[in-house]
Each structure stands twice: as structure tokens, then as C-alpha cells.
Design a protein around this nucleic acid. Sequence first.
DNA 1: GAGCTATGATTGACGCGTCAATCAGCTGGG
DNA 2: CCCAGCTGATTGACGCGTCAATCATAGCTC
Lengths: 157, 157
Amino acid sequence: MTTGELATWRALLDTTTELRRVLGAQLVQESSLSPADYQVLLALSEAEGRRLRSSELAATIDWERSRLSHHLARMERRGLIRRDGCSTDNRGAEVLLTEDGATMFRGATAPHMRAIKKHFADALTPEQFEALADILRALRGHLHSERADVPAGGAGS
Amino acid sequence: MTTGELATWRALLDTTTELRRVLGAQLVQESSLSPADYQVLLALSEAEGRRLRSSELAATIDWERSRLSHHLARMERRGLIRRDGCSTDNRGAEVLLTEDGATMFRGATAPHMRAIKKHFADALTPEQFEALADILRALRGHLHSERADVPAGGAGS
DNA sequence: GAGCTATGATTGACGCGTCAATCAGCTGGG
DNA sequence: CCCAGCTGATTGACGCGTCAATCATAGCTC
């Protein structure tokens, strides 16, 4: 690995850290929702009937189950979501958006989009967007191909 | 903001989250150092005499002071660093790398670099690296220019 | 249908990060 | 000199995330 490649890696870490910080701070200040809250509410508001099985929600947003459990407990306390037993599987829990949660989410969306535009989208040219999308596809593809490689027992690099 | 731009933003979040997770997990498993530990040890090992004023360290790695204080307390318990009063300013603390800390860091470096190469560097072409470096420069520049804009009260872009 | 294992979900403990409050020591004005 | 105010650093409380353990139920095998 070259010095430049390492520097680019560090730049990627630093820049994304800062972007998350700026956008996260703005989100929580404007709407009292953390990025994590937003992610949960987004997934729920896009789901059929604004409800999801807990495990499906975890899969959708790619969270560990226990993290989700803890977070849902906190969100339930705040009245953003509710948990309900599942009719077809008595072990299961259904998570559903409350009216309050939906309202909070709606109120947060527009300013958040504006912030993303301001701090991210406005910084790049259309060509850079395309290049970035390509790069991210390549990175994601690479990560996933590795994941498939190892368990199969194929030869490594 | 277009749908594609938003999708690229989401892809950036998701992909960097996953990269951090994979590389962080590998780092902690191979060397018992968290990414945060690594960042602190890297800054210290590059510093003059392997020591830094606490506030300079915070500035170097761009952390809140209280976060650093908490983290240093934990690292000190583990014997990775030591804190020492400062001779020129009795309020100040000097943070210095212990032998153990230096050894741990050295042991972690090579595997970590290999992991970065494997999961990140190997996924991209030289052209993509250049494009990515450009994009990150643009993003960083944009973020910083905003920061300078607002307090001064000048006209926006 | 009794026991075994697998699965959906939660819990507790503990390390981490943020915010607000605090402590200690420096510094400048009277 | 003394106090007011600033700065370097730490602390405590609390929300968050991970890991391992747990609980309850489903579903399979005999």
C-alpha cells in the first residue's frame, strides 16, 4: 500500500467523521432526534403499515439485535414508537410508529435534507458524484465478495 | 438535491460504517486495541519524545477534551500511557507513551495496514484513488469554508 | 406429547462519548 | 497584594453500543 493510498484512507475517515458530526449535531438540535433515531423512524415510516417485526427492522438498518432492543426501549419511553406482541409468533415483537413519532420524523426530514444538500451535495460536481457512486459500489462489492469468500473455504488472496 | 445524490449520501454512510466496523473489529481482535486507542497511540508515537500536552493531543486527533480525559484514564489503567505534570504550567498534563504502549502499537501497525490494504486499497483502481482524494478534498474544503463563513457574517457562497 | 434444539427478543454489565459542572492554577487590573 | 476572570484539565451523570447470558416460545424428533 502506498503512502498516498494510506493518506486517502485517513482522509476518508476524517472527512466522514466530520460530516457525521456536523449533520448529526444539526439534526439533533433542530429536531431532538439523533441520527440513530432518524434511521429507525425512516425505516418504520417506509414500512407497510408503519410497523415491522423487530428482527426485520434490525436487518433493514443493519443493526445488532441487542442494540436495537436497547434503542427501542429508549424510544418507547419517549413515545416515538410502541412495541406490540406478534399475532403469528408469540415470541416476536412488532414495532410500530406512533403518531408522535411520525410527526417528529416528518418535522425532521426537510431540514435534514437541506443540511445534507448544504454540507455534502453542494460540495461536489456531477462528475464527482458519479465517480463517488462508482467508488462506493466498488468498495461495497469488494467487502461483500470477501465475506462470501472466507466461509466457503476457498483459497485466500 | 436529486434522488441520486441522496442515494450516494446513504451509500457513503453505509459503506464507511461497514468499513469502520470490519477494520475496527479486526484491529481489536488482533491487538486488543480499539480504533480510538490506535488513534491516540499513533499521535503519541509520532510526537516529539513520545509525549504531548493533553490539549495538543486533543487538537491533533480532533477530540473533545473531556472525551480524551476519559479515554486517557482508561488507557492509563491498562498501562498504555502515563500522565505527568507539566513543568512550565502546573495546570497542564503531559501524556506519554509507556514502553508497553509503544510495543502494543508497534504490534498492531502491520496487521492493521494489511487490513486496510485488503479491505480498502485493493478495491480501487489508481484512477479511483485519485478521484476519491479529489472528492475528499472538495468535501473538506467545503466544510471548512462554511465554518469560516458563518461567524464572520459574510455573504454565503 | 416430552424433551431437545433453534430462534425472537430482552437484559445486565461494562466500556465509551457528550454535556454541564467543577477544580486548579495562571494572568491582568486595581 | 488580591481578586476577577480565563484557561487546562478532570469529573459525574446519563445516553449509547457490545458482548455474553437469559427467557420464552416454536418446531422437530422420537
